[in-house]
Design a protein around this nucleic acid. Structure first.
Length: 734
RNA sequence: GCCGGAGUAGCUCAGUUGGUUAGAGCAUCGGAAUCAUAAUCCGAGUGUCGGGAGUUCAAAUCUCUCCUCCGGUACCA
């Protein structure tokens, strides 16, 4: 079905940290490339995003940095907004969920669902920690299992016997937050009756066009197969969308409650659109209520939700259920092109381990615009479309040097240099048999478009020689291929084909040997360079979604004033893409003297960046190491112990159950070393244990100490043992 | 342990519903060329498609099993 316009969203980044390359590869760059492609194709396009600014993680981050939550969200919102801008991500609107429009939108959905009976109000007793002044989520309470009597049972499920029960049935409960005994207190929460949407969602998922990616379909189906159950959409939370004053809600019950972020965040797309449309309205570019009449509630709108794989079901099931439940003709995602994750030099991006390249880091070290292009290109050629992919600095270098600079940049440069040296810096003027070249070119392009595989009858296009024909054919066919790939969200393929167009252009230059014809066939040479100039301009169009800065500069060299897919509400929609394969440069027009577009990335840069990664990580680790006092250290009683018995703990992959002799005293200790030692290897060994550790129950089994072992990040592990084993069991270790 | 994903050329990855000789880019080697950022263009080689078994005329693709890696979750006291 052909839709009239395209609405694009990317998952709202959470405003408690900086955006890194992994985020970029997952949702923002693919969406931007697609948005630019759509705009170039004269498709009316909105690209919407913003900061997700509610939830516990924000308040925790605020406490950590000793500032207010508002400080946190302001800081990261501004920083990320600026970073996206530098990367050339062309949001029509980068909003935030703390704006009043968003509160209104979210509360409207909640109120509506309440009225329609989609919500289940449940009053339950839940443990409340009076010291910490908070209700305790399941994982923050533990006690004795009401079913099997095992100690250390958590929340609503016993790990030992697997029983489910109500939190408050726990015997001898303890708060893991303050350590106090929590009191049972009544609290009200609202649950979305997700199950009521099961049938609808099954139909929705299965009726989607086959272009949906496999990973997206499978994960959605797997959820549906398990059956959708009620999900709480409120939390005991102060930092979020409050519920007071919503019709049908008792203010007392609403006290201290806020919307759970997953219900809140996806609606940010809608409120951001509302906010944007108000701006457009002021500028005279939108009618009142366009946000829904034209966009969110119009069947002619195609909605694409770009996300990372962690967000799939929120956009294929939960958000559609919300939109459907709300009624009013809200449209559902037409497609949800989810990417997998990008790794960094073979390892996962990790904020805590500081294994990351934030956009800020990159811009600091590579401030020029063309490095940004190179980054976009390097990431996009390696998008994690079907499986996790890897970003390496070496790859960045290779992509930049061997492809962007050597193929694309070089063709632009050699064509323009040649034109300056031999044609006085003007698009060559053609005469004689080449007089009607533009018309012939257009005919040829039309023919190739309609008969992609047909043999070209040379007679029909007599003025062109074989390499002319091949060049124009490659251009037309190439652009067509690129479009097809984009339309199927095959970005990597699209980019490969884009680069192939530049390759064909280089081939044309080689085959034509203008440096020779300049001497013996000036007319032919002029034709060659005329075609090359047009090819340069064509390349500027097809490369624009990927490397926009370089393409804008090329346009400037050529004296073309034409939008290349940026956001410009005052510009008319022009189908630049459709005419990308046609000659539009005028003969005799002056072109500027070009500068190098893409500079080589040196080996030293790669080495420096790789080392920097390691240093950052080391620094993060050092920071974590707090110094302790001598007294604190002396609190830990370490003793040698002899392992008497060892066996694998049932149902456990990592734990061994050890019986050790502590010098007269027997202890049972659980040790997470089963992946490294067989039980029989350990019996008789002298080890070091923490003797005065509080006993704890793990998987229903008590552990009365801890065995010391040395372990590395890459997963090696060995236990610690005294140098002389005749020291025996029970010796103090200091 | 459970759930999900993955294992294909030296490297990074494609391989649509099972169907000819398993592909691309980079890297490597050889050649042409010298307008251009020593940049281009042409040509070449390369694989037990993680192991094993099965279904089939036919398996990278389907089934079973095992191994390894990643993510999530559940116990590394």
């Amino acid at each position: 079905m052909i839709k009239k316009r395209t609405l694009i969203t990317s998952a709202l980044p959470y405003a408690n940290g900086f955006i890194h390359l992994g985020h970029v590869a997952g949702a923002y760059l693919p969406a931007d490339i697609y948005a630019r492609f759509q705009r170039l194709s004269a498709e009316e396009t909105l690209y919407i995003c913003g900061s997700d600014e509610h939830g516990v993680a924000i308040t925790i981050a605020a406490e950590k940095e000793k500032v207010t939550p508002k400080d946190i969200i302001d800081k990261y919102h501004e920083a990320n907004k600026a970073a996206f801008d530098k990367l050339g991500i062309t949001f029509n609107k980068y909003s935030r969920t703390s704006i009043p429009e968003h509160r209104d939108t979210a509360r409207e959905f909640f109120g509506d669902f309440l009225k329609k009976g989609f919500l289940n109000e449940k009053e339950e007793e839940q443990f409340y920690d009076e010291k910490a002044k908070m209700f305790l989520p399941d994982r923050y309470v533990e006690g004795i299992c009401p079913n099997c009597g095992a100690d250390g049972a958590r929340g609503d499920q016993c790990d030992a016997c697997g029983a489910y029960y109500d939190q408050t049935e726990l015997k001898d409960p303890k708060s893991l937050v303050s350590g106090d005994t929590p009191i049972a207190k009544k609290t009200t929460h609202w649950y979305l009756k997700f199950g009521e949407f099961q049938k609808f969602l099954e139909k929705y998922i299965e009726s989607n066009d086959p272009e949906w990616k496999d990973n997206v379909l499978q994960q959605s189906r797997s959820w549906l197969k398990l059956g959708l159950t009620e999900r709480a959409i409120t939390r005991d939370l102060t930092w979020g969308i409050d519920l007071k004053g919503i019709e049908g809600i008792d203010d007392k019950k609403a006290e201290g409650k806020a919307l759970y972020v997953w219900f809140d965040a996806v609606l940010g797309y809608i409120s951001a659109t509302k906010e944007l449309m108000k701006e457009y309205e002021k500028a005279g570019k939108a009618a009142p209520e366009d946000w829904k009449n034209k966009w969110w509630q119009n069947d002619d709108t195609r909605y694409l939700a770009f996300i990372g794989k962690d967000n799939i079901v929120f956009h294929t099931l939960i958000f559609p259920a919300m939109l459907h439940g709300k009624g009013e003709n809200y449209i559902l995602p037409t497609n949800v092109p989810a990417n997998e994750f990008l790794n960094l030099e073979g390892r996962k991006f990790s904020k805590s381990k500081n294994w990351s390249i934030d956009l800020q880091d990159f811009f600091n070290d590579f401030p020029d615009k063309f490095s940004v292009d190179a980054l976009r290109y390097a990431i996009a050629t390696n998008f994690p479309e079907t499986k996790d992919a890897d970003f390496t600095w070496k790859d960045y270098q290779a992509r930049n040097n061997n492809e962007l600079a050597a193929i694309f940049g070089n063709f632009v440069n050699r064509s323009m240099q040649f034109t300056h040296k031999n044609f006085d810096g003007k698009i060559p003027e053609l005469s004689g048999k080449y007089k009607d070249i533009d018309a012939k070119w257009a005919d040829l392009a039309e023919f190739v478009k309609n008969n992609p595989d047909a043999v070209i009858n040379k007679e029909d296009f007599g003025i062109f020689n074989d390499s002319d024909l091949l060049a124009i054919r490659s251009l037309v066919a190439g652009i067509d291929l690129v479009s097809n790939h984009y339309n199927r969200f095959r970005f990597r393929d699209a980019i490969t084909e884009t680069m192939n167009i530049a390759r064909a252009a280089n081939k044309y230059f080689n085959d034509e040997q203008p440096w020779k014809t300049a001497k013996n066939d000036p007319e032919g040479c002029a034709k060659t360079l005329y075609i090359c100039a047009q090819l340069v301009r064509s390349l500027a169009v097809v490369f624009a979604p990927i490397v926009p800065n370089a393409c804008a500069l090329i346009n400037d060299y050529l004296g073309i004033k034409q939008s290349l897919g940026e956001v410009d509400i005052n510009a008319d929609l022009i189908d630049t893409w459709a005419s990308a394969a046609l000659p539009i440069l005028k003969q005799g027009a002056e072109i500027k003297k070009p500068a190098i577009l893409f500079h080589k990335v040196e080996d030293e840069t790669v080495t420096a960046q790789t080392e920097k990664l390691g240093e950052k990580q080391a620094a993060a680790e050092a920071e974590k190491e707090e110094l302790i006092t001598f007294d604190e250290f002396m609190k830990v009683k370490l003793r040698t112990a002899k392992i008497i018995e060892a066996e694998k703990l049932k149902k456990s992959k990592k734990l061994l159950k050890l019986q050790v002799d502590l010098g007269g005293e027997k202890r049972q200790i659980l040790a997470g070393v089963a992946e490294f030692y067989k039980p029989e290897d350990l019996v008789g060994k002298i080890i070091v244990v923490v003797a005065n550790l509080q006993p704890a129950k793990i998987m229903g089994t008590e552990s009365q100490g801890m065995m010391l072992a040395a372990s590395t990040d890459d997963g090696k592990l060995c236990f610690v043992t005294p140098e002389k084993s005749d020291i025996g069991a029970g010796a103090e270790v200091r």
